[in-house]
């Protein structure tokens, strides 16, 4: 698959397969296209060349196929993007009520279950602005999970967090991985990659430069650019 932003070739000859239940970590320097890559999976970005197939459905400009795929794919953003005018509970229940046409009472029950799952159940009646960053991101995870997606996309979920809150979000993601969710995670948290990923992908300048199981990836990086990147990112 290939993608351009205007004349800028941002994704070059991407050839990637992800199996059900696989946990993929995508890393690389900024500008490498890793966020753009995962945003192409739920059509927040459009690809100009090639095919993207999600859960057996080809992703095209067709409105209906896009909406079907978005129901199966949940996304967590770096900036959380919670809806500030709704309470935490309403944020999480919005998807089921509006998209899945679940009755409000049942949607709120489901929402509470998801909020408990990420351990922010006691914040249900507060507004996002009253929560810490770590709590907000966990609410965002609950919001995506409440749609019961098959695939979860994470776009640098901990990059906007204070260090002491990174762990609580990673723990929530670890729980999720332990339950067999298919996950595509763009992150700089190499510890997470080591412990959870089935495959680590390194991208640079729009290309997939290297991909491997974490043990081989970190111990024996094949490509020089990968080695450079790891030297900068891994702690001494």
């Amino acid at each position: 698959m290939n993608k351009w932003f205007g004349r800028y070739h941002v994704l070059r000859d991407i050839d990637l397969t992800v199996d059900r239940g696989e946990r993929i970590v995508v890393c690389g320097p900024s500008g490498s296209g890793k966020s753009t890559l995962i945003r192409c999976v739920n059509r927040l970005e459009e690809h100009q060349e090639g095919t993207v197939i999600v859960d057996g459905v080809e992703l095209t400009g067709d409105r209906r196929s896009v909406e079907r795929i978005r129901r199966e794919v949940g996304m967590v953003f770096q900036q959380f993007n919670l809806f500030p005018h709704l309470t935490v509970l309403e944020n999480v229940a919005l998807g089921p009520v509006e998209v899945l046409k679940v009755p409000r009472a049942e949607a709120e029950t489901r929402a509470r279950v998801q909020l408990d799952r990420v351990r922010v159940g006691d914040q249900a009646k507060k507004f996002p602005g009253q929560l810490s960053g770590g709590q907000q991101q966990r609410v965002a995870i609950a919001r995506a999970l409440c749609m019961q997606p098959r695939i979860m996309l994470f776009d640098e979920p901990t990059s906007a967090l204070d260090p002491e809150m990174v762990k609580e979000v990673l723990d929530a993601m670890l729980d999720l991985a332990g339950q067999g969710m298919t996950m595509l995670v763009v992150t700089h948290e190499m510890g997470f990659a080591r412990s959870v990923a089935d495959r680590v992908i390194f991208m640079d300048q729009g290309r997939i430069v290297e991909q491997n199981a974490p043990r081989e990836f970190f111990a024996h990086p094949e490509n020089e650019r990968t080695r450079d990147f790891l030297a900068k990112v891994l702690p001494r």
């Binding site: 739920n42 927040l44 978005r70 953003f77 509006e98």
Partner: peptide, 8 residues
């Protein structure tokens, strides 16, 4: 984007 990603 968040609204779109939810499928709204």
């Amino acid at each position: 984007e968040a609204a779109e990603a939810l499928g709204l």
